[in-house]
Design a binder for these strands. Structure first.
Lengths: 381, 381
DNA sequence: GGTGTAGGTTCAGGATCTGAACATTGGAGA
DNA sequence: TCTCCAATGTTCAGATCCTGAACCTACACC
């Protein structure tokens, strides 16, 4: 299908570029060793890619000639929508973050208001950097709900009711006049943790996002697995208790009704006042509040039931727990792990590690940045 | 890593061979179109492969020159162990079955007895074909339990207690003096259904084997997904009811205690006599026995809960239900599907089909045959 | 029987990778 | 400071491979 002589060259170019991207800086001899190509071939390919503007040869470096990715002009924007917050980051094409800010968002914001807020915040950050929209190469957008892979429309979400049925990439793209790539927030968090966080270098990972809702993302062989209709990883609506509480999705006893932040704060509202939020709940638990610790521990145990199922089905080596509730660290993860080891089959539990994410509430926006396609390579064929 | 000039030729040879294997018989022009190579390249590659003995050109065919796989000498053996049966098949390298037989096996057969029975049956079938063990190129073996991918040892299985801790491939290989490839029976059933059955041509499929126990196999991008320790797809021990019945695995309310054949026949033993078996249960249900229908329907509903979880996690487009209980067809699958559509999230349920397997109780042994590696290609480089 | 279309082969040409030879540079040691 | 060595990067001829075009062949249809 893709096997001609010229496709070989393209494949080798890609291999070289990828090796440089991973290592950051390499000499041509190292490049030859890692790619398995001969030094002669590497020499010509590097020269070509330099001429195409993809690679740069910094001969002035400490050693011989260091090959690096050519510095690209332009900026990337990452946007992460949550149930109650909005976070925007602006970064270089290398993904180094230059500016980042999070603002609270009203619970029942309409899509239009949310998009306007995002637009405003993007412009503010760009202004602070003395930059212009026209310098932005692309925008990555994360939303807490399943995106239809064909239409790009946000499916039924219990978290952002005002957004159902719209195409966020299209809507924001028109507003900003920029190419927007949209994805589920759990998928983006998984990408971020796999690129910079605790899942770095792992090829098969499950990522759990526990915030207002519960979502998951599955990385198989280094790529997000999306399933037949982009709904893979919708762990929040797994049935844990068939006779349980009614969920916003219409079923009973979904995981989300037992571990989702929206439901958890209802549990502590009576004792801790109506103004309590998920971050505050975590804060109190970490400070020693017994009730909050119990609520988070119970959530962890319920999550454990779902993760045990996931374990028996997929047998992952690593489960990363992210999202606002994961800020509770061991308070959430320890009970989760205990239940998984009790319920999952021993041979699956034995190889599993469950760890909190390393990127905290920045995972989503960093993943959004990572999801923006800005490969000089691509445009240079 | 694998990109040289000679690897291109090898890759193209492989592509051509694979195309011929899939289509059975192709003309060179068709081959050029399906592989994307030029007719000139196809011409030389086909000639090379003919000289190597991999392909055959049957110019006497109806049309022009039909390219086929060269007829290989030798035989393949497939062996499928179940809780209460043993099935052996002998086939040509093309996987055309020449002889096949199933015999009952005592419930608590030891590993040694089981392997002896298999050895005997293999010899009987070979004798009937006037063939010799030395003509056998390889043996595929299916066992109902997880195989450790590193050691090849059978992990904890509730179905074959006498087998735990042994390496079936090694043990049988020594007995037969032949190379044996072992795999989980659900994985083999999935391979068979994906190669010849209802999942033919599908790249992403979940296969459910419901017999004495409950197992599953997950095909992602055309390949069995095994997970970090080979335990992926162990659906039988997903917790359906935390306060349910005690399972042989030590937990409570595993799917297997609600839908596994071993438990189902206990339910009907009181009313239908102690001699009842799973096939008989299915037979009675198909004949109209109300009690048996109810038992099977309930099993389907419980399976539906687990499949709904699987659906929310993996979002497959197709779930194939195989194993002895699947012989009940719609009696099992309809209730299963009803529950899945109720519990799984709508966008996942909408794209899902649940169908009974097409290969019945032969799926395991056919998959075992398919799993034997006998590529002339490999030996011919 | 004639003609056309598609299949298959051959050949020259262009593209690619590789090994060997060669120039260059940085560093270790005297 | 100087010399030598080892590693790096480049160049070039050679071999391999794919492709397009021209050519031949066989079957089908008229």
């Amino acid at each position: 299908m893709a096997n001609s002589l010229s496709s070989l060259r393209e494949s080798n170019r890609r291999m070289v570029t990828e090796a440089v991207r991973k290592a950051g800086s390499l000499t041509q001899a190292q490049l030859a060793r890692t790619t398995g190509l001969s030094p002669a071939t590497v020499s010509t390919i590097v020269r070509e890619l330099r001429d195409l503007g993809v690679l740069a040869i910094s001969s002035g470096g400490g050693r011989r000639n260091a090959v690096t990715l050519a510095p690209e002009p332009g900026l990337l924007v990452g946007i992460d929508f949550g149930h109650s917050h909005l976070r925007v980051a602006v970064a270089e094409p290398t993904r180094r973050v230059l500016a980042e800010q999070a603002i609270p968002l009203d619970v029942d914001t309409s899509a239009a208001e949310g998009l306007l807020a995002a637009e405003t915040l993007v412009d503010e950050l760009l202004a602070a950097l003395r930059a212009d929209r026209q310098e932005v190469l692309g925008v990555g957008l994360g939303v807490p709900g399943p995106i239809d892979p064909l239409t790009g429309v946000l499916g039924s979400s219990t978290i952002l009711p005002g957004w159902v049925g719209i195409n966020p990439a299209l809507a924001l793209g028109e507003r900003l006049g920029l190419p927007v790539h949209v994805d589920n927030d759990a998928n983006l968090g998984a990408i971020a943790e796999a690129t910079w966080g605790v899942a770095r270098g792992r090829r098969d990972v499950a990522y759990l996002k526990v915030a207002s809702g519960v979502g998951a993302s599955i990385i198989i062989d280094g790529r997000i697995y999306r399933g037949a209709s982009g709904a893979a990883g919708e762990l929040g609506h797994i049935t844990i208790d068939e006779n349980g509480r009614l969920c916003r999705c219409g079923n009973r006893g979904c995981l989300e009704t037992l571990a989702g932040g929206l439901y958890l704060i209802e549990l502590v509202r009576a004792t801790h006042g109506p103004g309590i939020t998920v971050p505050r709940l975590v804060e109190l638990a970490l400070a020693g509040d017994v009730g909050c610790r119990r609520v988070i521990g119970d959530a962890g145990r319920h999550l454990g039931v779902a993760v045990a199922s996931l374990c028996n089905i997929l047998n992952p080596g690593l489960v990363v727990v992210g999202g606002a509730l994961a800020e509770a660290g061991a308070l959430l993860v320890d009970p989760l792990q205990e239940v998984v080891h009790r319920l999952a089959i021993p041979s699956a539990a034995a190889v599993l590690s469950v760890v909190p994410g390393a990127l905290g509430d920045r995972a989503g926006v960093l993943g959004a940045l990572a999801s923006v396609q800005v490969s000089n390579m691509e445009s240079a064929l």
